[in-house]
Amino acid sequence: MAEAQRARPKPTPETQHFWDGTQAGELRLQRCDACDHVYFPPRPFCPSCASRKVSIFKSSGKGKLYSYVINHRPAAPGFTPPYAIAVVELDEGPRMMTNIVDCPQTPEALELDMKLEVKFEKLDDKITLPLFHPAKG
Protein backbone atom coordinates (compact mmCIF):
# COMPACT_ATOMS: atom_id res chain seq x y z
CA MET A 1 0.00 0.00 0.00
CA ALA A 2 1.29 3.45 -0.91
CA GLU A 3 2.14 5.66 2.06
CA ALA A 4 -0.31 8.43 2.79
CA GLN A 5 0.94 11.64 1.23
CA ARG A 6 1.22 15.12 2.62
CA ALA A 7 -1.47 17.51 1.34
CA ARG A 8 -0.21 18.94 -1.94
CA PRO A 9 -0.95 22.56 -2.86
CA LYS A 10 -2.50 23.25 -6.25
CA PRO A 11 -1.43 26.69 -7.57
CA THR A 12 -3.92 29.13 -9.08
CA PRO A 13 -3.16 31.87 -11.64
CA GLU A 14 -2.75 34.33 -8.74
CA THR A 15 -0.35 32.15 -6.74
CA GLN A 16 1.68 30.52 -9.54
CA HIS A 17 4.58 33.00 -9.11
CA PHE A 18 4.95 31.93 -5.47
CA TRP A 19 5.21 28.24 -6.31
CA ASP A 20 7.51 28.96 -9.31
CA GLY A 21 9.65 30.86 -6.81
CA THR A 22 10.00 28.06 -4.30
CA GLN A 23 11.03 25.73 -7.15
CA ALA A 24 13.70 28.25 -8.12
CA GLY A 25 14.91 28.54 -4.50
CA GLU A 26 13.25 31.90 -3.87
CA LEU A 27 10.63 32.90 -1.33
CA ARG A 28 8.58 35.47 -3.24
CA LEU A 29 6.43 38.15 -1.64
CA GLN A 30 4.50 41.04 -3.11
CA ARG A 31 4.81 44.78 -2.50
CA CYS A 32 2.33 47.48 -3.45
CA ASP A 33 3.86 50.04 -5.82
CA ALA A 34 1.45 52.69 -4.54
CA CYS A 35 1.69 52.35 -0.74
CA ASP A 36 4.72 50.03 -0.20
CA HIS A 37 2.62 47.52 1.77
CA VAL A 38 4.21 44.04 1.76
CA TYR A 39 1.70 41.21 1.90
CA PHE A 40 1.00 37.47 1.79
CA PRO A 41 -0.76 35.26 0.64
CA PRO A 42 -0.42 36.22 -3.03
CA ARG A 43 -3.06 38.25 -4.88
CA PRO A 44 -2.80 40.68 -7.81
CA PHE A 45 -3.85 43.76 -5.83
CA CYS A 46 -2.95 45.42 -2.55
CA PRO A 47 -5.18 44.39 0.38
CA SER A 48 -4.26 47.64 2.12
CA CYS A 49 -5.05 50.26 -0.59
CA ALA A 50 -6.66 48.21 -3.42
CA SER A 51 -4.08 49.29 -6.02
CA ARG A 52 -3.56 46.76 -8.83
CA LYS A 53 0.01 48.01 -9.35
CA VAL A 54 2.00 45.50 -7.32
CA SER A 55 5.44 43.93 -7.71
CA ILE A 56 6.84 40.53 -6.88
CA PHE A 57 10.15 40.47 -5.04
CA LYS A 58 12.46 37.94 -3.39
CA SER A 59 12.22 37.81 0.39
CA SER A 60 15.36 37.51 2.52
CA GLY A 61 13.94 34.20 3.70
CA LYS A 62 14.77 35.27 7.26
CA GLY A 63 12.32 35.61 10.10
CA LYS A 64 11.46 34.57 13.62
CA LEU A 65 9.21 32.03 15.26
CA TYR A 66 5.89 33.73 16.04
CA SER A 67 3.94 30.77 17.47
CA TYR A 68 3.37 27.04 17.04
CA VAL A 69 1.73 23.86 18.21
CA ILE A 70 3.39 20.45 18.41
CA ASN A 71 0.78 18.19 16.93
CA HIS A 72 0.38 14.73 18.44
CA ARG A 73 -3.02 13.56 17.27
CA PRO A 74 -4.68 13.26 14.93
CA ALA A 75 -1.66 13.44 12.60
CA ALA A 76 -2.13 14.66 9.04
CA PRO A 77 -1.39 12.14 6.26
CA GLY A 78 2.34 12.08 5.51
CA PHE A 79 3.36 13.35 8.95
CA THR A 80 4.87 11.42 11.84
CA PRO A 81 3.86 12.86 15.21
CA PRO A 82 4.91 14.78 17.15
CA TYR A 83 5.57 17.53 14.64
CA ALA A 84 5.48 21.30 14.99
CA ILE A 85 3.11 23.41 12.91
CA ALA A 86 4.59 26.88 13.10
CA VAL A 87 3.91 30.44 12.03
CA VAL A 88 7.01 32.40 11.03
CA GLU A 89 7.11 36.19 10.96
CA LEU A 90 9.31 37.22 8.05
CA ASP A 91 11.71 40.17 8.38
CA GLU A 92 9.67 41.88 5.64
CA GLY A 93 6.52 41.71 7.82
CA PRO A 94 4.13 39.03 6.55
CA ARG A 95 3.60 35.81 8.46
CA MET A 96 3.20 32.33 6.99
CA MET A 97 2.53 28.83 8.19
CA THR A 98 5.40 26.37 7.91
CA ASN A 99 7.25 23.52 9.60
CA ILE A 100 10.52 23.86 11.51
CA VAL A 101 13.15 21.37 10.33
CA ASP A 102 16.65 20.42 11.53
CA CYS A 103 15.46 21.01 15.09
CA PRO A 104 13.97 18.77 17.81
CA GLN A 105 10.18 19.09 17.86
CA THR A 106 10.08 19.99 21.55
CA PRO A 107 9.01 23.05 23.57
CA GLU A 108 12.61 23.33 24.85
CA ALA A 109 14.10 23.53 21.36
CA LEU A 110 11.35 25.65 19.85
CA GLU A 111 11.69 29.03 21.54
CA LEU A 112 9.36 31.83 20.52
CA ASP A 113 11.20 34.60 18.63
CA MET A 114 14.12 32.31 17.71
CA LYS A 115 15.66 33.31 14.37
CA LEU A 116 14.72 31.16 11.39
CA GLU A 117 15.77 30.83 7.76
CA VAL A 118 13.89 29.34 4.86
CA LYS A 119 14.85 25.90 3.57
CA PHE A 120 13.20 24.55 0.46
CA GLU A 121 11.91 21.00 0.40
CA LYS A 122 11.02 19.46 -2.94
CA LEU A 123 7.75 17.56 -2.76
CA ASP A 124 7.66 16.48 -6.42
CA ASP A 125 8.54 17.84 -9.89
CA LYS A 126 6.02 20.66 -9.60
CA ILE A 127 5.84 21.62 -5.93
CA THR A 128 8.57 22.72 -3.52
CA LEU A 129 7.53 23.78 -0.01
CA PRO A 130 9.09 26.63 2.00
CA LEU A 131 10.09 25.16 5.37
CA PHE A 132 12.26 26.91 7.97
CA HIS A 133 15.21 25.91 10.14
CA PRO A 134 17.01 27.64 13.00
CA ALA A 135 19.31 30.40 11.67
CA LYS A 136 23.01 29.55 11.78
CA GLY A 137 25.38 31.54 13.96
Binding site: R6, A7, R8, P9, K10, P11, T12, T15, W19, P41, N71, P74, A75, A76, P77, G78, F79, Y83, I85, A86, M96, M97, T98, N99, L123, L129
Partner: peptide, 10 residues
Protein backbone atom coordinates in the same frame (compact mmCIF):
# COMPACT_ATOMS: atom_id res chain seq x y z
CA UNK B 1 -5.20 24.25 0.79
CA UNK B 2 -2.08 25.94 -0.57
CA UNK B 3 -0.70 27.77 2.43
CA UNK B 4 -1.81 25.83 5.53
CA UNK B 5 -2.77 22.22 4.68
CA UNK B 6 0.70 21.25 3.36
CA UNK B 7 2.20 21.94 6.78
CA UNK B 8 0.22 19.27 8.59
CA UNK B 9 -2.85 21.01 9.96
CA UNK B 10 -5.53 18.40 10.37
Amino acid sequence: GQFEAPFGVY
